[in-house]
């Protein structure tokens, strides 16, 4: 078996396993897993920029909510059906990430983190400011009757699960393919040593901008899907916390690995699920996890697996 075969087996095996789990798991966990797959898509978007391109953004909640509100407002304010609304959500995320990328990429390092954080904060405040339409922190519900696409009711358990799986699979396989392509390998080169990549003749600025747009659009896709599948959009998703979550998931699962985001979300989701039944301060677990990760497993779960045993993992 060549490494290429192993990679395919890993990727398609993951998707097949997720499909199979629907028939095996109890209803409660099936519901969780649908949410996990949408959040994992968000993490995949984040990982593309952080894990593969080496840019640490603290403002991805802005891209997630651009998709979420793009779709949500298109449906509730303009009465569009779900399919065109989804496209509007994607366009919104794409445009927002292009503008933010264009501006923020003039900076690097700490300043890049802070600038992305500030733009996201401005986005959050903007959602609050236009509370008449967005209903601010409280958020708004998308009617069940409207959450239909191509005649399929997306609010039912089955269709929601498989819609989430399709979303996840598209983004998972797309990113897996990109990072194996010459373009993706150039991004990795930029992550490893930007000055060297530039002096090999690569336009690193243009590459990084493309990476932000791809990353932001995938994140927005996840945001739009979240609103569509769970029928809710709220300003909470625009807070700093939702920019830090994908960083946490990706670090936990393994930055710069294709399966890392999914692994990270599953772990963190159940860790918080278990601890929130004990205490309201469930983010304490996230904090402890982050410190432990930084100290003992900076490469995350999948990263450690790759380093120790499976060097072929993409």
């Amino acid at each position: 078996m060549t490494n290429q075969h192993r990679v395919h087996l890993l990727h398609f095996g993951t998707i097949a396993l997720l499909a199979l789990l629907f028939f095996v798991l109890p209803a409660y966990h099936v519901g969780n897993l649908a949410r996990i797959m949408v959040l994992a898509t968000y993490a995949i978007g984040y990982n593309f920029l952080f894990g593969y391109t080496g840019l640490l953004s603290l403002g991805h909640a802005l891209f997630f909510t651009a998709g979420m509100y793009g779709l949500g407002l298109a449906m509730t304010q303009f009465g569009l059906p779900s399919a065109p609304a989804l496209i509007i959500g994607l366009i919104a995320a794409c445009l927002v990430s292009a503008v933010i990328g264009f501006l923020a990429l003039r900076t690097s390092g700490v300043a890049f983190m802070i600038v992305t954080l500030m733009f996201a904060q401005a986005g959050y405040l903007t959602i609050l400011y236009f509370g008449t339409y967005t209903r601010g922190d409280e958020g708004f519900v998308i009617q069940q009757a409207k959450r239909v696409m191509f005649g399929i009711d997306l609010s039912s358990e089955v269709s929601r699960y498989f819609a989430a799986l399709i979303l996840f699979s598209i983004c998972f396989l797309t990113v897996a393919r990109i990072v194996q392509s010459p373009f993706g390998k150039t991004l990795i080169a930029i992550r490893e040593n930007e000055e060297r990549a530039r002096m090999l003749g690569y336009d690193t600025g243009a590459h990084k901008l493309k990476a932000i747009i791809i990353s932001g659009t995938i994140s927005g896709f996840a945001g739009a899907a979240y609103a569509l599948l769970f029928g809710y959009a709220g300003a909470t998703f625009a807070t700093v916390q939702y920019s830090i979550f994908p960083l946490l998931w990706v670090l936990l699962g393994g930055a710069g690995t294709t399966v890392g985001p999914l692994i990270g979300v599953i772990f963190m989701f159940y860790l918080i699920d278990l601890s929130s039944s004990i205490t309201s301060a469930y983010m304490l677990i996230a904090g402890v996890a982050l410190v432990l990760l930084a100290m003992f497993a900076p490469q995350g779960l999948a990263g450690t697996l790759r380093k120790r045993w499976f060097k072929w993992m993409p």
């Binding site: 990795i188 080169a189 490893e192 040593n193 060297r196 090999l200």
Partner: peptide, 20 residues
Amino acid sequence: TSVFTGLPLRENIALAARRK
């Protein structure tokens, strides 16, 4: 010396060749 220290030697050279 400025090479991609985290990548295999082969990939270092491939990155240089691939641009063209």
